[in-house]
Amino acid sequence: MSLLDYFRISKAGTASLAKERLQILVAHERSSRNQPSYLPQLQKELLEVIRKYVNVEQDAISVNFEQDENQETLELNIVLPDYHARNT
């Protein structure tokens, strides 16, 4: 493999890298675009309430808002730590 080929291959990576990064970013931004504006605040307050009783991590809660033609669904997912949950 010549030096030129090496450069060619390393460059070949950048467009596909761009595509990959964009796909992830755009998917993320699209999903948050349709969410109601109160969602981050809701997530924060829920976390505070749950933490009064269970010692959970910051990222132990996920709040998902989904929308289709017929209904809007608010999905709340809390992962409890199995060890601490019993001891607090």
């Binding site: 460059k11 070949a12 467009a15």
Partner: peptide, 10 residues
């Protein structure tokens, strides 16, 4: 073609 730029399909 060189993989330096996003293609129209991308």
């Amino acid at each position: 073609k060189l993989g330096e730029m996003l293609s129209v399909d991308d």
